[in-house]
Design a protein around this nucleic acid. Structure first.
Length: 562
RNA sequence: CUCCCGGUAGCUCAGCUGGAUAGAGCAUCUGCCUUCUAAGCAGAGGGUCGCAGGUUCGAAUCCUGCCCGGGAGGCCA
C-alpha cells in the first residue's frame, strides 16, 4: 500500500515539476488522527520550487490518479498529505494475518547471502558477549530468510595457531597437576575452570602420554619457554591441542544450539592451511602492495585509507590472523554470494578498513561485504554490575545466563537494544515473570488469546474465522486502533530488513501486546452479542498470529499456555 | 594523539535517511479482581533532547567546535 502511494505521488510530482529530485517519504503518522498514511511530498517539493507548500499540495491531490483505495486525502498542517483508507482496505491486512498469511516479498530480487557471526575462538566457552552476537545473527538470518533470500549461516573456527597451542599447553599443565606434579601457569595461559575439565578428559584419552615425569621445569617462565620444551620432548603435542580444540568446538556448538542458534556451515581456519590457500591469496594481492620489510611481509593497506600498513607474514614465517582472514574472505567471495555479512564485536572495528582494503587489492568488489558491529554486554544484578574480565577468565558464560534467566528472556533482551549501543543486561528484570518483563508480557498476550479459543470450545460456542473477519467493521473506534497497529506490521519488518536491525520488532510486539491487554481488559470478548463477539475474536486472532510471526523471527518461543 | 559508539524524564531506553504536541517501560502517586489468565488494566505527575554556534519554512535528528562516559589503535586473536 505504501509503495502504491509512493509511486503515484512520484508520478504526479514529475508531472508538476519534471526536474523534481527530492527524497520524499510516505509513512505511518504518529497520530492516527493524521490518517493511515502521510507524505511530506508537498513540503519537499515546495522547497525546490520555492512555492507555497499548501498550494502545491492542492495541485498534487487534484492530479493524483486512482485514489479508489482511499476514503479521503486531506491536506493538513504545513502541507502534509494525509491518506485515509476506505474501510474495506483498512481491514485487508488484519484479514490476511488472522489466517496466518504473511507473504511479505520484502526483497524483489532474492539474494544469496552469507552471514558469519560469533566465530569466537574455540579456546573457551561462549560468554554473554558472544551470546548477543548469536541472538542477533540468528534472528537476522530469520528475517533475511523471511524476506525471501537464500541465507547461509557460517561460523569461522580459529582451530589452529598460537591460541590452539596455548590452550593445549594450558591443558597440559593442568594434566600435570592431576598427577601431583606442581607447575606454575605462565602468563598468557587460559586459566578458567573449564581448562581443568578438559585436562580430565585429556588424561582419560591420552593416559600417561603427556607427562613431564623427571623433566626439570623450574627454569621455565614464559609461554615460549614452555613451547620450546614441548617441541623437544613431546612430538605428538598437536594431538593434544587438536583434541581439546575439538572438545571446545563441540561445547560451543552445543551451547549455541540450545540458544536456538543453528549454523549451516563451520569453516575451519586449518583447512585454509591444509590447502595452502593463505599463500595463494597473498600472491593474488596487487604485487606492488605487498613488500618485504624488517624480515616480515607487509600489505600496504594505507593505499586504501587504512591507518597503517599491516603484516601478513611474521619474521618467524608464521602468517598473521589477518593473512588467514584475507584467504577466508577470498573464499567467501569465490562462493558467489550476492551479499556477505560479517557480524563482529565492536572491539574489532579497527579491523574493518584493512579487510576491505585486502578485498579491493584482490580485485573483488568490497561493496558486497557488509560488517555489522555489536557493542558490549554488561550484566547487572541486584543493582550491581557483575564484574567480568576475559583476561582473568572471570567472564560469565552464556549457558550460565541462559540457565539463570531462560532462553526467551535472554534472547529478547539481547535483541531489544540497538546493536551499536552498549547493552546493560538486567538479570533481575529478565528473571521476572510479570508484566515488567517484556517478553513475558508479549507471550502472555498470545497465551491469553489461546485461552479465549479454549473457552469457546469449553462453552460449545461456534466460531468461524472466515465469516467473523467480515464483521470487523462492528468494532468500536478505539478497538480499530489495534487494526491500525496491525496494518503497520509489514513496515516494521521492512524497516528492520532495510537497516539490519531487530529492536524495532521487539518494541512493536510489546506495543501490540499492550494494546491487546488493554482491549482484553476493557470488557469481555465472549459475549451474548454473537456478531460483535465474533469480530473481537477475529481481531484477537490476527494479534495472535502477528505475535507468533514476530517472535518466530526473533527466535523466541511462543507458548499457548502460561 | 587518531578512530569508533554513546550523552533524550529519577532509572533503563525508543525516536536520529529533517516534519505535526519529543515517546515507552520501570520507579512514584491514585484507582480497578464474584469476570474469557490481576502473570492484567485505567489515570496522574515528571523534559534546557550534554553545551555553544550554524544550515532553513521547520533541528532531538544534518554541519562545525567543545565537554563527559565507554571502546579500539601489536609481527595477539
Amino acid at each position: 500500500m505504501k509503495e502504491e502511494i509512493f509511486n503515484s505521488l512520484n508520478k504526479v510530482s514529475l508531472k508538476i515539476f519534471p526536474e523534481f529530485s527530492g527524497n520524499f517519504q510516505v509513512s505511518k503518522p504518529q497520530d492516527s488522527l493524521h490518517g493511515d498514511w502521510t507524505s511530506n511530498l508537498a513540503l519537499i517539493m515546495a522547497k525546490q520550487m520555492k512555492r507555497n507548500p499548501r498550494e502545491l499540495a492542492n495541485e498534487i491531490v487534484e492530479s493524483l490518479e486512482s485514489p479508489q483505495s482511499f476514503e479521503k486525502i486531506v491536506i493538513a498542517g504545513a502541507g502534509f498529505l494525509n491518506f485515509y483508507l476506505k474501510e474495506e482496505m483498512f481491514f485487508e491486512k488484519t484479514k490476511e494475518f488472522a489466517k496466518g498469511k504473511f507473504e511479505t516479498p520484502l526483497e524483489k530480487n532474492p539474494k544469496k547471502i552469507l552471514l558469519e557471526y560469533v566465530s569466537s575462538n574455540p579456546t573457551g566457552p561462549i560468554h554473554v558477549g558472544h551470546g548477543r552476537s548469536a541472538a542477533f545473527g540468528s534472528a537476522l538470518a530469520n528475517l533475511l530468510k523471511k524476506a525471501g533470500n537464500n541465507v547461509t549461516q557460517e561460523y569461522y573456527l580459529n582451530d589452529r595457531g598460537l591460541q590452539a597451542k596455548t590452550l593445549g599447553l594450558s591443558v597440559f599443565l593442568r594434566m600435570q597437576e592431576l598427577q601431583g606434579i606442581n607447575v606454575n601457569l605462565p602468563e598468557g595461559c587460559y586459566a578458567g575452570e573449564y581448562v581443568k575439565v578438559l585436562a580430565l578428559k585429556a588424561k582419560k584419552k591420552f593416559k600417561k602420554k603427556f607427562l613431564l615425569k623427571d623433566i626439570d621445569t623450574s627454569s621455565l617462565e614464559s609461554l615460549d619457554d614452555w613451547f620450546n620444551l614441548i617441541e623437544d620432548s613431546f612430538k605428538d603435542f598437536s594431538d593434544l591441542s587438536n583434541f581439546v580444540i575439538e572438545i571446545q568446538t563441540n561445547q560451543i556448538k552445543k551451547d549455541l544450539d540450545s540458544f536456538n542458534v543453528q549454523y549451516d556451515s563451520w569453516f575451519k581456519e586449518s583447512d585454509l592451511f591444509k590447502n595452502n590457500l593463505i599463500q595463494k591469496s597473498i600472491k593474488k594481492l596487487k604485487e606492488d602492495e605487498v613488500e618485504e620489510k624488517e624480515g616480515a611481509l607487509w600489505f600496504k593497506s594505507t593505499n586504501y585509507g587504512d591507518e597503517k600498513d599491516r603484516v601478513l607474514v611474521r619474521d618467524n614465517d608464521e602468517p598473521t590472523y589477518f593473512a588467514s582472514d584475507i584467504a577466508y574472505h577470498e573464499n567467501k567471495f569465490k562462493r558467489n554470494f550476492d551479499e556477505i555479512i560479517n557480524i563482529w564485536g565492536a572491539d574489532h572495528h579497527g579491523y574493518v578498513p584493512r579487510v576491505k582494503a585486502s578485498i579491493e587489492s584482490l580485485g573483488l568488489d568490497s561493496e558486497k561485504l557488509k560488517t555489522l558491529l555489536i557493542q558490549f554486554v554488561s550484566l547487572k544484578e541486584r543493582g550491581q554490575r557483575v564484574q567480568m574480565s576475559t583476561r582473568s577468565g572471570e567472564f560469565v558464560e552464556l549457558s550460565e545466563l541462559v540457565n539463570d534467566v531462560g532462553i526467551d528472556s535472554t534472547r529478547y533482551y539481547f535483541l531489544a537494544r540497538k546493536a551499536e549501543q552498549a547493552l546493560e543486561f538486567d538479570i533481575d528484570l529478565a528473571k521476572k515473570t510479570d508484566k515488567d518483563n517484556h517478553v513475558y508480557y508479549i507471550q502472555y498476550a498470545h497465551a491469553r488469546i489461546c485461552s479465549i479459543k479454549k473457552e469457546l470450545k469449553k462453552r460449545n460456542i461456534e466460531f468461524e474465522l472466515e465469516t467473523s473477519l467480515e464483521k470487523l467493521n462492528l468494532l468500536k473506534e478505539n478497538e480499530k486502533d489495534i487494526i491500525s497497529l496491525i496494518n503497520g506490521y509489514p513496515e516494521i519488518l521492512e524497516q528492520c530488513y532495510k537497516n539490519y536491525e531487530l529492536h524495532p520488532l521487539c518494541f512493536y510486539l510489546r506495543d501490540l501486546s499492550s494494546k491487546f491487554h488493554s482491549f482484553y481488559n476493557s470488557e469481555k470478548i465472549i459475549t451474548e452479542n454473537k456478531d460483535y463477539s465474533d469480530a473481537k475474536i477475529a481481531l484477537s486472532t490476527a494479534v495472535q498470529e502477528v505475535i507468533k510471526n514476530g517472535l518466530n523471527i526473533l527466535g523466541i518461543n511462543c507458548p499457548e499456555v502460561m
